[in-house]
Design a protein around this nucleic acid. Sequence first.
DNA 1: AAAAATAAGTTGAAATATCCACTATTGCGT
DNA 2: ACGCAATAGTGGATATTTCAACTTATTTTT
Lengths: 155, 155
Amino acid sequence: MRRGKIWRQANPTNPAFTPETSPFFHLSRLTGLYHLRMDAHLKPIGMDVPRWRVLNILYEHECAPISTIADLAVIRMPTMTKLIYRMEGEGLVSTRVSAKDGRVTEVSLTEKGHAGVDQVRVKAGLIFERAFHDIEDGEIEAFMKIMKKVYDNIY
Amino acid sequence: MRRGKIWRQANPTNPAFTPETSPFFHLSRLTGLYHLRMDAHLKPIGMDVPRWRVLNILYEHECAPISTIADLAVIRMPTMTKLIYRMEGEGLVSTRVSAKDGRVTEVSLTEKGHAGVDQVRVKAGLIFERAFHDIEDGEIEAFMKIMKKVYDNIY
DNA sequence: AAAAATAAGTTGAAATATCCACTATTGCGT
DNA sequence: ACGCAATAGTGGATATTTCAACTTATTTTT
């Protein structure tokens, strides 16, 4: 076990632990603020963060089962099922039962869904720019590397 | 404007953008997974992540108005108000109107709330250990520095 | 000292998310 | 082929979050 200064304070079991020294506390806080900012931009165009997550995933996958989308977005399946059908009602995605496997519901983007992605990316770009304008490329790279590592560790 | 490899792909307005190259997408995903793992540990002891955020903040502040807690936790005030009163009903916190300012409701930890913090920290410690065991102290430090910077940028 | 503006909180209705139990379909082992 | 386990999804009851409008208290203007 290491004995560094950070390690000690970052571990919640240590008495010296505070939210200020906790990576996960900062993580939750930053994500919360990001969602707040995104929502402010997305609301006026009838969109929100969960929808955007789905659109982004489908933009890449073209056609994916609900379970895969739920897994990639880290949203529980019952929640995702309902979100997908809401989005279908809004014309953003279309669904159909898979020909290969009668259990799976395949979801794909509609024309309107594609347009929605482009529309939201402009907004997302603004926030990204604001958030990372003074962060070096190398730092962003390192940042993402750690997030991936931690994600895999608790996956 | 910079032209690095990461920058281009990380910006949502760039056609080469994918969730895989987006810091914010990874951020949301990691936070989601973390909440999932925490919930699994917290549910059996009648706790959850929002409650834990509040407990942690009060552990530091001893006595804070709802608005401050809401701000620190990045949770909207109506949500926080209801959460606080739920927690009061559960005996975790106590509330009273401030003597100095009749508008503010001061919240503080009860005995049971303190015990709850200690109890949850054990669980949080397990997940922290699992998540960061192979991450260097220096990396954690850099990680948190970037999160703070980004947080301030979009605050 | 009002009047106006701001800040803190509260509440009810509506939107969402979550739990849990259930169905339908497929895969696996013998 | 048969039965059992696993997978994908659905549906209802419940819990939580959010919006929008409102109340009350304080601060700032004029």
